[in-house]
Design a protein around this nucleic acid. Sequence first.
DNA 1: TCCGTGACCGGATTCGAAATCTGGTCACGG
DNA 2: CCGTGACCAGATTTCGAATCCGGTCACGGA
Lengths: 271, 271
Amino acid sequence: MVVATAPVPANHHRDPDEQEYAVPSPTQSTNRTANRVARAERILDAAGDLLVSWGYAKITVEDVARRAGVGKGTVYLHFPTKEALFLVVLLRAQTAMIERTLEVLRQGPEGIWPSTLARTTALALHESPIIATVMKGRTETLGTFARAAAEYSTELVERRRTTAQTYFDVLRDHGLIRTDRPLGDQMYAYSSILTGFLVAEPLLGEQPASTPPSVEHHADVLADTIRATLGESDADDTLHVAWPKVTALFEDLARDARAEIDRYTHATRDT
Amino acid sequence: MVVATAPVPANHHRDPDEQEYAVPSPTQSTNRTANRVARAERILDAAGDLLVSWGYAKITVEDVARRAGVGKGTVYLHFPTKEALFLVVLLRAQTAMIERTLEVLRQGPEGIWPSTLARTTALALHESPIIATVMKGRTETLGTFARAAAEYSTELVERRRTTAQTYFDVLRDHGLIRTDRPLGDQMYAYSSILTGFLVAEPLLGEQPASTPPSVEHHADVLADTIRATLGESDADDTLHVAWPKVTALFEDLARDARAEIDRYTHATRDT
DNA sequence: TCCGTGACCGGATTCGAAATCTGGTCACGG
DNA sequence: CCGTGACCAGATTTCGAATCCGGTCACGGA
């Protein structure tokens, strides 16, 4: 028998008893749908974990099922296809990020500053390997899935763009950012800057070991850049006026994102 | 016979008579080394053209020779190896960019503003497909060559970093940019912003067809961002003092870059 | 009755040995 | 003495065989 020379990290052996998410004993009483949801979540967690460590191509639906502690067929009771499953994994991570933004927004009106938004995004990216995977190694861990993911979620991307535009519109209307530049330019600048800080993160030759981990620090520099570029300022204390509008905007987005997830969940949908 | 289904663009047939750079008649009188240099340049041009349209992997040394209108062995009289040849192609493009920066620098002291520098870089990138190739599709057109390129030119990269640091140091010393932020942060911000604008260029859903080609416009937005972030200002007219220093800095860099090219040229070097 | 399961199917992917290609050399010709 | 292209060996591609895995479905247990 030839030993497989797969480039799988040594610490990721495919033992059946690797199950991180063991089935929580056969509770026979509790609500049916509750169990169902919990199981779906276990499958998604398993899929997410495997995605960041193995990459889409190497993952078998059976791997996911095994790790989730369910049968292979069960996966297909929840998701119509492997693609749909991982699409939901991605959507879920994205939604989590939107909701994280919402949390910050709800904490106080300062959350609506673009600099704060960017800062939150940068920090979230360093904690959520899934999102980081999506934004960076496009063709690395996602492989053939990248195209499918891009196609399926076209409308959500467009939805995000619209939200962003309205967001900047609100900020401009309330004099919270400079209006001597076209809105399109500001959006372009914002996304470019964010992209740059996200992808350039690990680059740049090793600095002298003065700054220890500096993830937060880099996020601060990013926030500074955004602030300087957009010229954030709250002359008339309109921050409190814009606050609920922006919050509502993102709540809408979050709702739509959640709805999008449902579209690809339960395989038991008619067609 | 099976027709090759290679993904080579249809307009790039490998006819031997495709030679764009025909040998300019057998001039037998003029200086020897002049001919030699001209030939080396033809080879480099051919290699560069092929690189951007075919990618490193698909190019044959014979392809390059054919297009340059020389024999295959001749290529090896000028460059010790295929890698060295393409390394010089890259170094040459990079040097061209440095020299383009120098041109702008020599035109007037305004050239030393980081915003101008970034603007020039962005514009140059859109005209030099080679550099654009290097900065963007790292693993696309460069393929296996990417690693080699990175390794060989480690010192030049470090050299660039040092130059950049000194550059920002000079600007700070003369009060041309804000000094209330650490130098490291400013360098980090500068490179991140630049990277972001360069890679995010083609992204962002189609805007309403208001702005026609907008390459220049995008470069302007980039310049604006840099300016706002670094807080460029010339309170004491020290711009003229810093000018020669910065120019000298980049002239040194250009000289070193040219020297680096020579290191990999003429195959007739001892070892 | 209904949910979960895993054996099973066929298309897709991988593997590997044979065939082809290509980077680099070198003897020769101009 | 410079340039050339036939030539060599190692690397890469090809292509059919073997394997794998996404998706289905008949069955068994609750």
